[in-house]
Simulated scan of single mutants.
Amino acid sequence: MDAIKIQIPSLSENIRIIESFIDNAKEKYQFDDDIYGNIMIAVTESVNNAIVHGNKSDKSKNVDLSLFLEKSQIRFTIQDEGEGFNYDNLPDPTAPENLEKPGGRGIFLMKNLCDEVKFEDQGKRVELSFYID
């Protein structure tokens, strides 16, 4: 199993480092454009959540991103140094009362773009899986 890891301080402008990381992975592993688009949106959204919500944009705290390539899937884990959150009790962003709210769409997006989303360690670690076969 191939693995690549990167660590960034919790600054929103570091999202571009994550975008480059994903671009490099696309070149290295030659995944399809449709999967690439889903990966780019889901992973950057997850890292942004880790920066803003997990680490409260505290630049002394880091976000770790790991990529694991297996035979039939590519898996990303995103880990923050925050306190976690209750991922089983999230409001539905498609419910009429939530449509106008600015937040709450990131995890919904991730669940729709990934083949599998798993939260671990009280929500401080998220695993995003994409099937590549």
Rank of each mutant, 00 (worst) to 15 (best):
H53A: 14
N86K: 07
E127V: 01
A50W: 01
Q73H: 12
T77L: 03
K124N: 09
D32Q: 08
V43K: 04
E13V: 15
Y131H: 11
A42V: 06
M40V: 08
G82R: 03
A25Q: 08
A50Q: 12
L99F: 12
D23I: 09
K111R: 15
K56M: 10
N89H: 09
A25Y: 08
L99C: 07
S12D: 07
A42P: 02
P102Q: 14
K26T: 08
D88R: 13
I74Y: 05
L69W: 03
I41H: 01
R16E: 12
N55S: 10
S60D: 08
G106E: 12
I51V: 14
S60F: 10
D115C: 02
K59F: 09
I6H: 05
D33S: 12
K5W: 03
K61P: 08
L11T: 13
E13H: 07
E83K: 09
I35E: 10
K56R: 10
S60I: 10
N55C: 13
I132D: 10
N49Q: 13
K71P: 04
K26W: 03
L11S: 12
N112C: 04
L67I: 00
G123Q: 05
K56T: 08
R16A: 06
Y36H: 10
G37Y: 02
G104C: 02
Y131F: 05
I41C: 00
N48I: 05
K28R: 15
A25E: 14
L11F: 09
S66N: 07
A42Q: 02
A50G: 08
I41T: 11
L11I: 15
G54H: 03
Q7S: 06
Y36E: 13
D23S: 12
K71N: 14
L128W: 02
D133M: 06
G84D: 04
L67N: 00
I74Q: 06
M1G: 15
L109G: 01
L65R: 01
K61T: 12
D133N: 14
D32T: 13
I74H: 07
D23C: 07
F31V: 08
G103F: 11
D64M: 00
I18W: 02
Q7P: 00
F119N: 04
D34P: 12
I35F: 03
I78C: 02
C114S: 10
S10V: 12
K59L: 05
S20L: 13
S12Q: 15
D92G: 05
K61N: 15
P102I: 10
I41Q: 02
S72H: 14
L99S: 08
Q122S: 15
D88S: 09
I35W: 11
K101G: 02
E120Q: 09
I15L: 14
Y36C: 11
N48A: 10
V47W: 03
K56P: 01
